[in-house]
Structure formats: structure tokens, C-alpha cells
Simulated assay, not measured.
Amino acid sequence: MMCLPASPPAPALRLGLGLFVLLCLGIGQAMEKKVVRSKVGEKVSLPCCHRIPSSESLHTYRVYWQKNITEVVLAYSEGNMISRHERYQNRTEMDPWNLTLWISPMEILDNGSYKCIVQRNSIVVCDQSVILFVTADFSKPNITAEVTADSCDVTEMVITCSSHGGFPKPKISGALNNMSVEWNANWVSESSFSPYNVTGKLLLNVTKDVDITCSVEYNGFSKSTSLLIKKTNDCVVPPVPPPYNVITASIIIVITFILATTLAARYLSRHVCSHCCKHQDSVEDGVKEYTKAPMSSKGTADTSSV
């Protein structure tokens, strides 16, 4: 006769399932990573995964706060601080009940992953990570426009957008008359944990007034600037000089007119003078004839009287 294993009683089954659920919840809590965001110069709190009951005290626990696994930020044992990293001197403190780690003022180098490890009687009570994102504000973007070529129809410009002093590495975007444009961006930083300077350039052909916007986006934050660029060239077309043939013909006409006027003036002056001279000669001849006639008659009278 084959013996079959007896089925476990129902209460034991429920207890086993309950322990399994608790174990899964504990693993999930250990693997869960909280995210905290802060800015340079602020005070930030990193939560721990355990709170000491009011019936106990910190003296019965060991607490370790470490960064990136290798750096021990600070450690407590039997209620006393036993270690603190030199970079966190005078910038950190821990709440004795909820074990929250306070850091102030924030620095860019504080960016990273932290872990709170709590032990009681050499047994790990909890082990949880916290991701800290540190942000440094960028300056308000500055937009400049440089004209590289100008004509009646189009003005070629190089648009430059720049911002500095921020963290982490930003994304630069923009819009031209509410239409998205892509900047040719360049980033400068001394290291991966140093402030960034960003510059974006855009080649633009302006045929009319345009409104351009530049935005610098970093770690969920954004700063923007807009600039109205006007097409200032009214394009006044200069008068076109007449062709060479027209100029030559005009000069010949003017010279001919001057010569004709001069010749006409000389001819008229000579004609008037000759007419005046002939009239004067006829007058003089008349006077002479008139003078001679009486003298002849007188001589005759005298002769006859004799």
C-alpha cells in the first residue's frame, strides 16, 4: 500500500503564505530606491528605512550612512558617532529617532546614491538606498544676433544662445515663431561633477520679423529667453545710371546746343551792327547833300546880281 504525504493543515498553510508575503515585501522594500532632489546651497534630508520605537533608543542600534558603497558618510554605534567622512565635516547630522540624514549646504559633489543600513544586535533591520540629484541653476540664457550678409531679399544671421554655471549637463532647445528649431550645442565643464557652460548656435536667413526663443533644460528645471529680430533693411534701390551711349549722346546734344547758341549770338550781333552802320552812312550822305544845295543857290544869286 502506497503512503501519500498528509496535506498540511489549513492554519499552517496560511501562516506559510503570510511569511512568504512578508518576505517579498521586505525584499521589495530593500530594493526600492527613493529619489530626492535638491539645489546647491540648500539643506536636504535623506530618509532612512527604520524608525526607532519610543520604548528603545539609539544606544541599542548601529546605523551606517554610506555613499556609493565605498564612502562612509557617518556611522553611529551605541548612541555615539564613530565615523564621519572629512568632506561632510560640519555639513551633516542625523535624527536620533527616524535616522534621517541632513546635509547642508548642498554641493554638486553630493550628487549620487546613498544607503542607510540599520543593525540591532548584529542583525540587519533594514537596508535601503536613496538617490540624490543635486541641481545648480543655470543663468538666464543670453541671445545675440550677428549679421553675416545682408541684401534686399534676405539677411543672413548667426544666432547665439549661451548660459553658464549650472548642473547637470543641460539640454538646449528653441523655437522660431513657435516652430521648433535645433541648436548646434556645445558644452564645457572641468569634470562630470563641475558646473557646465553651454552655447548653442543657429544659422538663420531672415526675410521678415521673427521671434526666437532659447530654453536651457536641466534636471526637471528650465530657463528661457526670447528675442524679436527685425528685418531692418528697407531695401531702397539706388537709381540706375543711364547707359554709356545715352550719356555720350546727351553730351553731344548739349555741346551742339551751346555752339549753335554762340554762333547765333555772334551772327545777330554782326547783322545788327552792319544795319546800324548802313543807316548812319545814309543819314550822313543826306546831310551832306542838304548842305551842298543851299550853298549852290546862294552862289547863283550872287552872280546874277552882279
Rank of each mutant, 00 (worst) to 15 (best):
P168F: 03
G165C: 08
I172C: 02
P141I: 10
F133C: 10
I131E: 12
T148D: 06
S163A: 15
G165W: 01
D150S: 13
T144L: 04
G174F: 09
V130C: 05
S162A: 15
M157F: 04
F167P: 00
A149P: 00
A149F: 12
N177T: 03
C152Y: 04
S139M: 08
H164R: 08
S129E: 10
E156G: 14
D150L: 15
N177Q: 08
C161D: 00
V158H: 13
T160D: 04
L132G: 10
T148P: 07
I131Y: 06
A136P: 08
S162P: 01
I143H: 06
G174S: 03
L132H: 06
T144M: 03
N177K: 00
S180M: 08
S162C: 02
I131S: 12
I143T: 02
V158L: 15
L132I: 02
S151I: 09
D127E: 14
V147R: 13
D127G: 00
A149G: 10
A145F: 04
D153R: 00
S139L: 10
V130K: 03
K140P: 09
A136T: 05
I143F: 12
V154T: 11
V147P: 07
L176W: 12
D137P: 11
F138D: 11
M157Y: 08
D150C: 08
I143D: 06
P170K: 09
G166D: 08
A149L: 10
P170N: 10
T135S: 15
H164T: 15
A145R: 12
S163D: 08
D127C: 00
P141E: 14
F138H: 05
K171N: 14
D153G: 02
I159Y: 07
S129M: 12
S139T: 14
G166L: 03
P170V: 13
E146G: 05
V130D: 03
S139I: 14
V147E: 12
A175R: 13
I172H: 05
K171H: 10
M179H: 05
S173V: 14
E146W: 05
S173W: 00
V154Y: 06
E146R: 14
Q128H: 01
E146T: 15
D153C: 11
P168S: 08
C161N: 00
T148L: 15
P141W: 02
V181N: 00
N177W: 02
A136W: 02
A136H: 05
C161E: 02
D150G: 00
I159W: 12
G165A: 11
V130S: 09
S173Q: 06
S162F: 03
D137H: 08
S163C: 11
S151D: 02
S151L: 07
P170S: 06
A136F: 05
V154N: 06
L176I: 10
I131L: 14
S163M: 06
G174H: 05
V181H: 00
F138I: 11
I131V: 15
K171G: 12
V154F: 11
S151E: 01
I131G: 10
I159H: 04
A136Y: 08
V158P: 00
T160A: 07
D150V: 13
Q128M: 08
T160K: 07
I172S: 01
E146Q: 15
Q128K: 13
F138Q: 10
D153V: 14
T160M: 03
N177P: 06
S163Y: 04
F138C: 14
I143G: 09
K169W: 01
V154D: 01
P170F: 07
N178K: 09
D150P: 03
C152V: 03
T155Q: 12
F133E: 15
P168G: 13
D127P: 02
